[in-house]
């Protein structure tokens, strides 16, 4: 869990999205490792990491809702 700079060249036109909410990442991003599976996720900030866990909890408590 840490902040990272989106280290891009000034002529790089690619776009980066938050892995949790979908919003565009601007200049830097927050990363965390999924507890299940160990995948690294890039997101807007810590609140998106909390959102990730919250959605997972909701899904587990009410699957398919």
């Amino acid at each position: 869990m840490a902040w990272h700079e989106l280290d891009k060249s000034w002529h790089d036109t690619t776009v980066d999205y938050c892995d949790v909410c979908g919003n565009l990442l601007i200049a830097r991003y927050w990363s965390f490792v999924e507890p299940v599976g160990g995948e690294t996720r890039r997101c807007c900030d810590e609140s998106c990491e909390r959102l990730f866990h919250r959605l997972r909890r909701i899904e587990e408590s009410a699957p398919g809702s």
Partner: peptide, 13 residues
């Protein structure tokens, strides 16, 4: 919070 995954019609890539 709004969750609109990239690549869906709700968040274009």
């Amino acid at each position: 919070k709004v969750v609109a995954p990239a690549g869906t019609i709700t968040c274009v890539r």
